[in-house]
């Protein structure tokens, strides 16, 4: 193989090393791309809401499409009680989407292809949903683990399974996003390596595959952001509207 396909995920320092209390806080390429995606989102939404016209311009149209998409998703999956959590889910979706999409540019870095980033977001969601559930329902939230309509013989087994599935939520949520991003980008690099090693005569087949895979990866980049947001809505729905 020409180059290591995992090389693209390397985190390296940009600028001087900053250490505060033994923790390495240096500015890396990962932080650069996080800042870039946050700046892109802010710029897009700022331009979109600068002049509010009845007939929207390009940027206003894009912003409205994003807004309506997320608002509809929340009201469909979590009901009207989840309205106060709209800003959180909207910023979560936009951040994941723009990190994924900026990662599709050649020579860029995909922030979400590192499990520490996705795991942090997933743990935050998990803790937030659990706290919301206990605040809204008190200890009645524990009824989530005891589904109604189950025979009494099976109930201990089902409860254990429910608890395990609840606790594995942050793992599955984070590994899904991370694995999709990493596998997709590795696959693109491997096919790129085939193009180089097969040369001018045989390289056209993997090159055409590579083009098709780039299209698929853009779809996956959107889809994973969507799935991340919709699963957050589903978890919120469990915490807000507790009835099984």
């Amino acid at each position: 193989m020409a180059t290591n396909p995992m090389h693209q995920f390397q985190v390296y320092k940009l600028g001087p090393e900053i250490k505060i209390a033994g923790i390495d806080l240096s500015f890396t390429n990962a932080s650069l791309f996080m800042l870039l995606s946050a700046a892109t989102i802010c710029g897009l939404l700022f331009l979109g809401t600068k002049e509010k016209k009845i007939i929207p311009g390009k940027f206003q149209l894009i912003s409205e499409i994003f807004y309506n998409f997320i608002a509809k998703m929340i009201s469909d999956t979590a009901g009207s009680k989840a309205k106060p959590y709209f800003p959180f889910i909207f910023s979560l979706f936009m951040f994941v989407l723009f990190c994924n999409m900026l990662g599709m540019l050649p020579y860029s870095f995909t922030v979400t292809s590192h499990i520490i980033v996705t795991l942090l977001m997933a743990i935050f969601i998990f803790v937030a949903v659990t706290v919301i559930g206990f605040l809204k329902h008190g200890f009645g939230y524990l009824k989530l683990f005891v589904p109604s309509g189950v025979p009494a013989v099976l109930l201990p087994l089902i409860t254990v399974i429910e608890i395990i599935s609840y606790l594995s939520r942050p793992v599955s949520l984070s590994v899904r996003l991370f694995a999709n991003m990493m596998a997709g980008h590795t696959m693109l690099k491997v096919f790129g390596g085939f193009v180089i090693s097969l040369g001018v005569l045989g390289g056209w087949l993997p090159l055409s595959f590579s083009v098709a895979l780039t299209g698929l990866e853009i779809l996956v980049a959107f889809l994973q952001a969507y799935v991340f947001a919709i699963l957050t809505c589903i978890y919120l729905n469990d915490a807000l509207n507790l009835h099984h």
Partner: peptide
């Protein structure tokens, strides 16, 4: 459909991980 697709794909990717 998209949700089901992503959920099904993710289980396979756990194996890849």
């Amino acid at each position: 459909l998209l949700l089901g697709f992503a959920l099904a794909e993710a289980t396979g990717l756990f194996g890849l991980v």
